[in-house]
């Protein structure tokens, strides 16, 4: 029935044809250029590039920083989402809209500000550096700026789920004798958990590819503080196209895996919700 009515509307071939052409030109052809370029390398060459010491340390820095940043975001994001959903206080609306700022602020600006705040004479640096906390040009600095860029994801995935939980569920549990802590760990947290994981995966995926902010905050020294996207740029500047592409392909496969995981997680959380 639905199908019949839908077919009465015009424009499927035009709209689908146009958008498929656009997607092919802008996404599919460039994407296949990347894979085909990688394919021009023999397995051995590919292995040399992808498993070289410098590349490996760039991957491990990228993955570990993105991972830690996403873990920190899970905690901070859950905290902020909880407060925004459950409590009323002055200035709440302003805070709520501030959450989205990292998505709207150009990453280069984020990198510029974070490096300026955490250097020795910066607003935060002058207190932190004497304590031995280097927030700029350090691993911590990279993780922290990735926390900034990935911050909205966890808040925005957890918030709607928390909003949907009906107060009756909690009341029922409390009346039956559960403590507040039990209600939280046994009922609320498990309900929110899939959304929390989705937010984590989104923040992690964002962190893997982040370039603009990181390049300001990191000292970008090979083997020490060079992230994978920075290494791609470096290889390209040496005109080593195939090698840059090989590293990019590994990064691509990692992001596609994350994308697939996010979809599975979302399906899972819908089924539970």
């Amino acid at each position: 029935m639905k199908n019949n009515t839908r077919n009465a509307l015009p424009g499927l071939s035009l709209s689908l044809g146009y958008s498929m052409t656009y997607l092919s030109l802008l996404v599919l052809i460039p994407l296949s250029a990347c894979f085909l370029k990688t394919a021009t390398l023999s397995w051995k060459e590919m292995g040399d590039v992808v498993w070289s010491q410098r590349t490996l340390s760039a991957y491990s820095l990228t993955f570990s920083s993105a991972f830690f940043a996403a873990v920190i975001n899970m905690v901070l994001g859950f905290w902020v989402a909880w407060v925004l959903v459950r409590y009323e206080f002055p200035g709440k609306r302003l805070l709520d809209s501030l959450v989205d700022l990292p998505l709207a602020l150009p990453t280069a600006v984020a990198g510029l500000v974070y490096s300026s705040l955490y250097v020795e004479n910066g607003w935060f640096g002058r207190f932190l550096v004497p304590l031995g906390i280097e927030g700029a040009y350090s691993k911590f600095g990279i993780v922290w700026v990735l926390v900034f860029t990935g911050f909205p994801f966890v808040v925005r995935t957890v918030q709607p789920v928390l909003e949907e939980i009906e107060p009756e569920v909690e009341e029922a549990a409390r009346i039956m004798g559960a403590s507040r802590w039990q209600v939280f760990t046994r009922i609320l947290f498990p309900m929110v958990f899939p959304a929390l994981l989705t937010g984590f995966a989104q923040a992690f995926a964002r962190g893997l590819g982040e370039y603009g902010s990181v390049v300001f905050v990191s000292s970008n020294i090979p083997f020490v503080s060079e992230m994978a996207p920075v290494l791609i740029v470096a290889r390209l500047e040496e005109m080593a196209y195939a090698e840059a592409t090989a590293i990019a392909t590994v990064l691509l496969i990692a992001s596609f895996t994350m994308l697939a995981m996010i979809n599975v997680l979302e399906a899972w959380s819908k089924r539970r919700g």
Binding site: L16, L23, V27, P30, G209, T245, S255
Partner: peptide, 29 residues
Amino acid sequence: FLALIDLPLAISPVVAGLFFVLLFGMNGW
């Protein structure tokens, strides 16, 4: 089709830039 639309969100901007270098660069397609 829907997955294809979301794809650019999952791709690192640096990698996206590289795509276009591979297409339009001197040794590109």
